[in-house]
Design a protein around this nucleic acid. Structure first.
Lengths: 204, 204
DNA sequence: AACAATACCAAGCAAGCGCTTGGTTTGTAA
DNA sequence: TTACAAACCAAGCGCTTGCTTGGTATTGTT
């Protein structure tokens, strides 16, 4: 199942918004603005202008500004968890699975969902306690995918450090790429970057 | 030269504020609040209350709120660059130097200056263009320390990946520790964590 | 055609924001 | 004691913020 089909199925289940719907368009613009200026510096007037409506009309679609932030985060996690599960399903060994995970996470961070992923990493403080809990639960399921593979690799002796620590280091390392990695200009492709990460782990 | 002496000398040169001065106390509280709630969500009234003065009185010490943010960042970089240079000076081989760099950065991220370091990483978007340039110049000098060592290790064949990429991965990985590493509760000491990082790089 | 639901606009309110102002207290040194 | 600057307070200004309100198009269903 490729990425497009996964997306379609999630849309059908109403778990993420179609990008051509009013809601989807708003969430995309919101992710862009939240990443560019930060959640607090982005006003509801900014958001409304970005989709060409009046600021008050936003509240027909979302009850509060924070609900928009939460929706960006929740839909992003849902999509990426599904994509990642699919990418991993095709791999045989744990080594291959790890490579698939790294590659998929780099894609989600630097590809289409990149802006939303950056929001997920940097704007969680702007969530209310309740929303934070909700988002964290989704995150935990995503993280379980990683820990399974890393624990497997440790058992095989391929990994010398603690799986929990390694996952956390990789979380930081990979999410940080959003601040410097520009796949368009400059020679490093995503595959190339994945190779570098694997080489850095001594698993080249 | 130990850390305390370095600090004294920087204070003497007016490059960082003494923590018992009015300015120093304000900057410490500001770092705490900025990290806890984010720069935008922290009001000048919050800052003033934290040091026990009226909000207007802040502007006797700093011309704008942003100037406070910049001061937190600038002083933190200055201090940590100096500490890191000292830590590296005692090491002989590049391997030892790398370990010293990792350990020192983990200390600056998770020790006394941790709150300020987190601000440095997460709040740069709230800086004006001019301040951003200024902070980036200081950062570049700090980064040069890392690149020298990593390039050396690559030359020796101890490092299989690109030094620039590795440094950026380490930047993300180490700064991310601030979100999960708790040296007080839980068994992992800073030395232990440094070991894990070195092991992860296949240089244990 | 009739109706209801959906999507939107125009206007503005209440609250909170960064920052200013004019004046008072506190510290320091001659 | 006097002189003066640094540190601070009390009050509030002007503006922006998230959000509300009452009403009007637009769309879909029967």
């Amino acid at each position: 199942m490729n990425q497009e089909k996964i997306l379609q199925s999630l849309i059908a289940d109403n778990l993420v918004s179609a990008s051509d719907s009013a809601r989807g368009r708003l969430l995309r613009e919101a992710a862009r603005l939240f990443r560019e200026k930060g959640y607090e510096r982005t006003t509801v007037r900014d958001l409304a202008a970005a989709v060409g409506i009046q600021s008050g009309s936003l509240f027909h679609h979302f009850r509060t500004k924070e609900e928009i932030l939460k929706a960006v985060m929740v839909e992003t996690i849902r999509l990426n968890t599904a994509v990642m599960q699919a990418a991993m399903g095709e791999a045989k060994s744990n080594r291959e699975k790890l490579r698939a995970l790294i590659s998929a996470e780099l894609e989600s961070i630097n590809g289409q969902t990149g802006e939303a992923m950056a929001v997920l990493v940097y704007e969680w403080r702007s969530l209310s306690e309740a929303s934070r809990t909700e988002v964290l639960e989704l995150r935990d399921r995503y993280e379980a995918l990683w820990l399974d593979v890393l624990t497997g690799l440790e058992g095989e002796g391929a990994l010398k450090a603690d799986p929990f620590v390694v996952r956390r280091m990789l979380t930081g390392a990979l999410s940080w790429t959003v601040t410097w990695y520009r796949p368009d200009r400059g020679g490093l492709t995503r595959d190339g970057l994945t190779d570098q990460v694997v080489a850095m782990l001594g698993m080249g």
